[in-house]
């Protein structure tokens, strides 16, 4: 378990997440892609903290903040989905043509 290996795993998670976020039509699946990317980022933060940062506490703090961001992202995401769904019954990105203009 070296830093390089950890970073490659994190990179794989971020890459997969990006693929999901870009390719999925449904809002919720899109958010899953974002979450997966954040997952990779957390792995990055912890890996650097443990193996390159001499265990400074700010490294862990960063991970906590990422977790909070995830919670916020999901809560706001779902609130928006509900709001959009109420007004236009859309649950896929394609159905939201109005936002283009």
């Amino acid at each position: 378990m070296t830093l390089t290996m950890l970073l490659i795993v994190g990179a794989a998670l971020i890459g997969t997440g990006l693929y999901g976020a870009l390719s999925q039509q449904s809002f919720v699946m899109l958010m899953m892609g974002l979450e997966l990317m954040l997952n990779g980022i957390m792995l990055y933060a912890v890996a650097f903290w443990a193996l390159a940062g001499h265990g400074i506490p700010e490294g862990q703090l960063l991970t906590i903040i990422v977790m909070a961001v995830m919670a916020i992202e999901m809560a706001m995401g779902f609130a928006l989905v509900v709001a959009v769904f109420r007004t236009s019954q859309a649950d896929t990105t394609e159905a939201l043509q109005d936002l283009k203009h």
């Binding site: 890459g15 997969t16 997440g17 990006l18």
Partner: peptide, 9 residues
């Protein structure tokens, strides 16, 4: 999307 994901990886 797959291409971009792979590129980032």
């Amino acid at each position: 999307a797959a291409l971009l994901g792979f590129a980032v990886f």
